[in-house]
Design a binder for these strands. Structure first.
Lengths: 187, 187
DNA sequence: AGACACCTACCTAGTGGTAGGTAGGTACAA
DNA sequence: TTGTACCTACCTACCACTAGGTAGGTGTCT
């Protein structure tokens, strides 16, 4: 992959995570990357193609992050705490959202393949969380544990909702308030 | 308030909750309400003014809904279950979001007054939830109860996140899966 | 020569609006 | 009753700009 293509993806991801898919245009990317707007179509034929590439790339990055969490954290509880930190970090001080949260409210603007990728992203995260909760069940690192199959979707929604309200107010403390009880359960 | 102004607000709310603030235009409202696009400016000078009116109206509607919940449900647990139902109902089978969720990811497109109103909406909901959790603490209708001050922001984020992921997939079952544990705690 | 990565010129469609006007209705004074 | 002034609620014509693109071309490197 070329430097320009990567620069476009980086620029587009920042824009999408800050302003949503309808809130930025190729003109914004053109300014930031330093090539003319029609040249972007050489790399990405349509905005939908660009968005698809963004989500696919984001999924890979999140897979890597989860693998890193697993290898750096021996207990289920520590893994979940680490994921909370990843979602908190994605807030960038309240100025951005994780990509799939950023795209979800404007899903009508997205091609079907992108919607599919977003669904796969969420499924992957839920599967990972089920495993982490199950590990916490075995190693005793999570208190008040219900069925991992039920904990996982609730936790993902909590993280996404906490991100969204923190982003709206540009205030990370809102994320922290929403995740306090979860973090108190894991170690 | 005139019929036309109300019709515009209704149309705009549907559009915003389905497609987000950047995903619809005055042209859409014009088509649905049956007046020309510039005529909309007679009723709402700018799109920001319209959005402000939307959020203020939504807040009032939600206040009314919470009052109704309080009078129809004697226990804290039942009140929270009823609020979950309100948020589930707002999904309209997976085709829409509650207004503030729909607007939050595109908050960069909004005037400051609207951001303020969204913040007030969330504060109001959290205050209501604190009271409901405190009532549940007194009447025993909620199990495994932590501090209401911590339960409330977590619950609001859970509801908003559950809404968002259900909307992305147009699948109410995702909302149900995310809220299952919460509903199992309240009666 | 071919591949790659850009460029300019231009396109259609759309965006949120402004400006000036019309039509119908109401209230009030002579 | 009539005329006037004002209000409400719309209209047409138009604006400046922006959106995602298309088409044809150029320059560089292997």
């Amino acid at each position: 992959m070329t430097d320009t293509k990567t620069a476009l993806l980086d620029s587009a991801e920042r824009a999408a995570r800050t302003r949503g898919i309808d809130g930025f245009s190729f003109a914004d990317l053109s300014l930031e990357v330093g090539i003319r707007k029609p040249s972007i179509h050489y790399h990405f034929a349509t905005k939908g193609t660009l968005t698809l590439a963004l989500v696919q790339r984001y999924r890979i990055q999140m897979d890597v992050a989860c693998v890193d969490i697993d290898s750096a954290n021996p207990t289920g509880g520590a893994r979940i705490a680490a994921l909370v930190a990843v979602y908190r970090q994605a807030l960038n001080g309240g100025t951005s959202l994780c990509l799939c949260v950023a795209l979800s409210a404007s899903r009508e603007s997205l091609p079907a393949e992108v919607i599919t990728q977003i669904g796969l992203y969420r499924q992957t995260m839920i599967t990972w969380l089920v495993d982490a909760f199950a590990a916490g069940q075995s190693d005793g690192s999570i208190t008040d544990l219900r069925a991992p199959q039920d904990e996982a979707p609730a936790t993902l929604s909590l993280l996404e909702g906490a991100q969204l309200s923190a982003r709206a107010a540009e205030d990370v403390a809102i994320f922290d308030a929403a995740t306090r009880l979860l973090l108190a359960r894991v170690s």
